[in-house]
C-alpha cells in the first residue's frame, strides 16, 4: 500500500454550541484522488479550513507527510497546494503577477515553474491579462496553477466544479486525473455532487452533519446491494405497478404524476420484469437506469435520516 500523505484524526470543531465537525478521520494516500462528499453545510469547508491551517481544530490532529500541522506549519505547508471555497486571486493583477506573487512566498524554484504551469492549465495566452477579465473556469485553472507552484505532494481543492459549465467541469476533472496519474500528486477534492466524485475519485469519504459516515473505494460505495434504481416508462401505470411489485426489491414509489415508475430492482432481474410486464399486456416504452443519487446513499448509510 502506498504511503499516507495526509491523515486527519478525530478532527472536531465547534462554533459556539454547534459542533460543525465531529471526530472526522481519514487518510489520503500517495497518488490517489480522494473525494470528500457531503451536502452543503455538512462541514466540508470547515474541515478543509482546518486541513490548511486557516482554522484551528478544537481536538484532533492533522499530519501532512508525517509533519504535525499545528506544530510544524511551515514545513508541512510546503507539501500542500490548495484552493479553499473559490479561486480568489488578485483581480487587479494579471495572471502572471498573481503567480509571481505566490511564487515569491515559496522556496526558490517556484518562479521558474510559472511558464510550465501556465501551459499545463492552458492559460499561456491570457497570462498577461488582468484576472478581473477571466471567466470563472479560467480563474479556477489559474488557482490550480497557483496551487501547483510549490511542487506539492498534496493538492486540496474545495468544490472545484462549483459554478462551472459542463465543459469546464470536464477540463478540471481531466486535469485532476492527469496530476494524480502523471505526477503522483494526491488530490483531496470536496464536492456535493456524487456524479463528480464518481468520475474523478479513487476513494471517497462521506460526511454528513459533521460526521464521516462511510469511507471506501468509490465503486464499493455505489454498488451497494439493492441500490439500483430503474425508471419504467409504461402504460397503463396502475397495472404495471401491480406487476412490478412482485419483482422489485422495494415496492414502486407512490404515483408522483411523473412520466414513469421508479422501482428499486437489481440489474439481473430487469429482463424478467420486462417480460412479466409485456405478458400482462402493459406497453413498455423504455427502461432507464437511474444513477443512484447522493440522497439515496445518505438514506442508506444514515438509515432513513433525511439529508
Amino acid at each position: 500500500m502506498s504511503a499516507v500523505v495526509l491523515s486527519a484524526e478525530g478532527l472536531t470543531k465547534s462554533f459556539g454550541r454547534r459542533e460543525a465537525v465531529s471526530a472526522v478521520s481519514f487518510e489520503v494516500r500517495e497518488g490517489e484522488v480522494f473525494g470528500f462528499l457531503g451536502p452543503n453545510g455538512a462541514g466540508k469547508t470547515t474541515t478543509i479550513r482546518m486541513l490548511v491551517g486557516l482554522a484551528r481544530p478544537d481536538r484532533g490532529t492533522i499530519r501532512i507527510r508525517d509533519l504535525d500541522l499545528a506544530r510544524d506549519f511551515r514545513r508541512a505547508m510546503q507539501h500542500v497546494g490548495c484552493i479553499v471555497e473559490s479561486p480568489d486571486l488578485y483581480r487587479y493583477l494579471t495572471g502572471r503577477e498573481n503567480l509571481l506573487h505566490f511564487a515569491r512566498m515559496l522556496p526558490d524554484g517556484a518562479l521558474g515553474r510559472i511558464g510550465e504551469l501556465a501551459r499545463l492549465v492552458a492559460l499561456e495566452e491570457r497570462l498577461d491579462d488582468k484576472v478581473a477579465t477571466y471567466s470563472l473556469g479560467m480563474r479556477q485553472r489559474l488557482g490550480i496553477a497557483q496551487a501547483l507552484l510549490g511542487n506539492p505532494d498534496l493538492l486540496i481543492l474545495d468544490e472545484p466544479a462549483n459554478g462551472l459549465d459542463p465543459a469546464g467541469i470536464r477540463e478540471i476533472r481531466l486535469l485532476v486525473r492527469r496530476l494524480a496519474e502523471e505526477r503522483n500528486i494526491s488530490v483531496f477534492v470536496s464536492s456535493h455532487l456524487l456524479s463528480e466524485v464518481e468520475q474523478m475519485c479513487d476513494r471517497v469519504a462521506i460526511i454528513h452533519r459533521g460526521r464521516t459516515l462511510a469511507a471506501g473505494p468509490v465503486a464499493d460505495l455505489l454498488d451497494r446491494p439493492g441500490s439500483d434504481r430503474y425508471r419504467f416508462l409504461v402504460s397503463p401505470r396502475e397495472k404495471a405497478a401491480e406487476v412490478l411489485a412482485s419483482h422489485a426489491s422495494a415496492p414502486p414509489a407512490a404515483d408522483d404524476g411523473g412520466p414513469g415508475l421508479d422501482v428499486r430492482i437489481s440489474r439481473d432481474r430487469v429482463p424478467e420484469a420486462v417480460a412479466a410486464l409485456t405478458g400482462a399486456g402493459v406497453a413498455v416504452f423504455a427502461v432507464e437506469r437511474q444513477a443512484s443519487s447522493l440522497e439515496e446513499i445518505f438514506l442508506e448509510v444514515t438509515g432513513g435520516e433525511t439529508v
Binding site: 480568489d88 486571486l89 515559496l106
Partner: peptide
C-alpha cells in the same frame, strides 16, 4: 473581502 487571505495564509510562511 477579496478572499485572497485564504491563499496568503496557506503558504509555507508564518
Amino acid at each position: 473581502s477579496q478572499g485572497t487571505i485564504k491563499l496568503l495564509l496557506t503558504r509555507p510562511v508564518g
